[in-house]
């Protein structure tokens, strides 16, 4: 059961993007489906623009006509 750990779950709210939660996590979506992530830290989308919701895909980022910089991966 959740909450059995002696230490509280440490969650971080970022100012511009996702909620960072320690994994692994199961997320129940409004339609009842369950998404699972086993990462040691999971980024949960809060802007609702992610194409891989409930996980963050950086779609919250500000968009501009001309990026000042940008590299190749």
């Amino acid at each position: 059961m959740p909450g059995t750990s002696e230490r509280p779950c440490r969650i971080a709210l970022t100012d511009d993007g996702p909620l960072l939660v320690p994994g692994p996590v199961e997320v129940t979506l409004p339609d009842g489906t369950v998404a699972v992530s086993t990462r040691c830290v999971v980024a949960l989308c809060t802007c609702r623009r992610s194409a891989i919701y409930p996980w963050c895909d950086t779609s919250h980022r500000r968009r501009a006509c001309h990026a000042e910089e940008g590299g190749s991966p």
């Binding site: 006509c65 990026a67 000042e68 940008g70």
Partner: peptide, 16 residues
């Protein structure tokens, strides 16, 4: 911050 801005369209300099 400069890296965290996504270009709206392809400006012709991005490989991806």
């Amino acid at each position: 911050d400069a890296l965290l801005v996504e270009p709206v369209r392809d400006d012709g300099t991005s490989v991806s």
